[in-house]
Design a protein around this nucleic acid. Structure first.
Length: 590
RNA sequence: GCUGGUGUGGCUCAGUCGGUAGAGCAGCUGAUUCGUAAUCAGCAGGUCAGCGGUUCGAAUCCGCUCACCAGCUCCA
């Protein structure tokens, strides 16, 4: 604790530097305890740091306290961090017994400065910067040990990664650890199951969640909302099959790019027989609608939308709650337009997305990512460098016109074009794409989609692949985490819980419930065996927007006592309550 | 797919050295009718994820499979 006599020193380093230095201290401690350890890399990251090791023994969570204790000794020594550089030959000699460091040096450009940091008897190849001495480290904690591939390449060796975090003060550290615990309580995978939004069974299989009545209700509400809004914005609803012959996927090249990720029906190796595959995306199905007859430039833009169930055979370790699953429902759509219309249509897509995010209350939680191709990894993409550069410039231009705050990411594009990805983090801090808008300059030609332009020439249109609210299951997961299960009134599976204080009030409550339902509200009255609503558990009640309490007082005065999630609203008539609730639902209040 | 962890009634968990399963909550029955979750009494509920092996004997030991969790890789 800080006292007036020992004011908290203003550190001349930032948190990232402190954490990076702490990772060095951890590496030194590991090396003391496991002298044969080979070191990989140990950067600071959001909220902490990690270091990757190649060890003979498998570390366990139980081994972390010993490492922390060893770190404490190093910190007590107040070792200085001193920087020095070496010529390449000497640098290589210095790390001769550290193969991963040798590889790192060999991959650095010939003219790169090779800097090292020495701290006690521990020296590490490192660009820095660092704190002045280990005594600065006051508050740290090792969190977990997991596997991680060397250089993030699944073909390379899996190393052992220790995650940790560090803060300037112990209070800040404790606050962070508490926040991590709190975040876990919002985990959709926990509360979604507890509150019975979804479940899984081993007999149905991995990545195949079962949406229970509450989950199914929310998805239905979202779907109606999306389809209605899209209709207002000029979209044409389609409903296309859930599977197709592989020939379709061969044209789109999905068969080449993602065959392992598709559920194939039939012998995929047999080129003679008829083979089907469940659809992993909607594009070529919806394209068939466009292709049904000759199109004119006067028809464009054509905006197609569909609530599409998709199937992807994700690898076993990749499934996660409702966020990553093998069957999911996407608010999918494709806009076919002329080159001149691309910008307007793209802006319209983003406006729709932002409208959705605003309505759901997620706008402040997302970031925008401009996902580009990787020109060094061309086999992942179709089309020429020229076409890629042109289309990416087109999208960047649109984004800059919009003054959108975005980050650029290489190698994150779809194989047919660049994307604007709307990213959101889950409670574990892991980021996922929840919504995407993509510009495709390739598939129209592959599917021979054309329009007759004003000059009488047949031309290939641009196609915008877009979602408006994303994958319904994933969006539900994010909503559950955002609201800790207490969804906004308009989305709540149960909007009103009616609580009869005694059996005397029970009949009256049934009548109230009937009236509320007639007004379109979703009501729950716990009336099993004529028992009183008292039994509605607090754990559930706290998630329900409104609870109506009815006892003698209310029945005599023809009122209900209204308790909202944020406090008591007092007594009012049922009509007053209903009018208020219906208004709030119409406004989609949060 | 890879690394590690987990898997006991609907839920949360206990089960010592292998001797053949226990609690609370939920459920059901009855009593209670109580102003904002856990009133009282009783009842019922488990092939200890599944399969195979070791053993006289396995929830406990070994192997395989399945599912769940965290991380890595992947994500049209």
């Amino acid at each position: 604790m800080n006292t007036p006599d020992s004011p908290r020193p203003v550190p001349e380093f930032d948190l990232q530097t402190l954490r990076h230095s702490t990772s060095h201290v951890m590496a030194a401690a590991v090396l003391r305890l496991y002298p044969t350890a080979k070191l990989a890399i140990g950067p600071a990251i959001d909220n902490g740091f990690y270091y990757d090791f190649d060890l003979d023994t498998q570390l366990k969570q139980e081994d972390l306290p010993a490492i922390e204790a060893e770190m404490k000794k190093i910190i007590k020594e107040r070792f200085a961090f001193t920087r020095f550089t070496l010529p390449r030959a000497e640098a290589l000699a210095a790390v001769a017994d550290q193969p991963y460091k040798v590889e790192l040096i060999n991959d650095l450009p010939a003219d790169a400065e090779l800097s090292f940091y020495k701290m006690g008897d521990f020296t590490d190849l490192c660009a820095g910067p660092h704190i002045d001495h280990t005594g600065r480290i006051k508050a740290y904690k090792l969190l977990s040990v997991t596997g991680a591939y060397w250089r993030g390449d699944s073909n390379k060796k899996m190393l052992q990664r220790i995650y940790g975090t560090a803060f300037v003060t112990k209070d800040e550290l404790q606050a962070h650890l508490t926040a991590l615990e709190e975040a876990k309580k919002r985990d959709h995978n926990k509360i979604g199951r507890e509150l019975e939004y979804f479940t899984t069974t081993e007999y149905i299989g991995q990545g195949l969640p079962i949406l229970m009545p509450k989950g199914a209700k929310v998805l239905q509400l979202l779907q109606r909302f999306v389809e209605d809004e899209e209709e207002r914005r000029g979209y044409l609803l389609t409903k296309t099959p859930s599977l197709a012959k592989r020939d379709l996927y061969k044209i789109s090249t999905h068969w080449d790019h993602y065959r392992d990720g598709m559920f194939v029906i039939g012998d995929a190796e047999d080129e003679e027989s008829e083979v089907f595959a469940l659809r992993p995306m909607t594009c070529p199905f919806q394209f068939q609608v466009y292709l049904a007859r000759m199109r004119s430039y006067r028809d464009l833009p054509m905006r197609f939308n569909e609530t599409a169930t998709l199937f992807r055979n994700e690898s076993s370790g990749e499934m996660h709650g409702l966020i990553r699953v093998r069957q999911f429902t996407l608010s999918e759509g494709h806009i076919v337009c002329t080159p001149e219309q691309v910008e307007n249509e793209f802006v319209g897509c983003l406006d729709l997305v932002n409208f959705m995010l605003d309505t759901l209350g997620l706008r402040e939680d997302v970031t925008y990512r401009f996902s580009k191709w990787d020109e060094n990894n061309r086999e992942k993409y179709i089309g020429s460098a020229d076409e890629w550069n042109r289309t990416q410039a087109l999208m960047k231009n649109i984004l800059d016109h919009l003054k959108l705050d975005y980050v650029e990411a290489d190698g994150e594009a779809a194989f047919y074009g660049p994307k604007l990805d709307i990213q959101m983090k889950n409670v574990h801090g892991k980021e996922d794409t929840i919504i995407t808008i993509q510009i495709d300059f390739q598939l129209a030609a592959r599917f021979e989609m054309e329009y007759v332009d004003a000059d009488g020439q047949r031309k290939h249109p641009y196609i915008i692949h877009r979602s408006s609210i994303g994958c319904y299951e994933r969006t539900l997961a994010m909503l559950l985490e955002k609201y800790a299960g207490a969804l906004p009134l308009w989305l709540a599976p149960t909007q009103v819980a009616v609580l009869a204080l005694t059996d005397r009030h029970h009949e009256y409550c049934r009548e109230l419930t009937r009236q509320l339902q007639a007004a379109g509200l979703r009501v729950e009255l716990d009336d099993r065996n004529e028992k009183i609503g008292y039994k509605i558990r607090e754990a559930q009640v706290s998630k329900v927007p409104y609870m109506l309490i009815v006892g003698d007082k209310e029945q005599e005065t023809n009122t209900v006592s209204v308790r909202a999630r944020d406090g008591d609203k007092g007594a009012m008539t049922l009509q007053e309550f209903t009018a208020m609730a219906v208004q709030q639902i119409q406004n989609k209040e949060r």
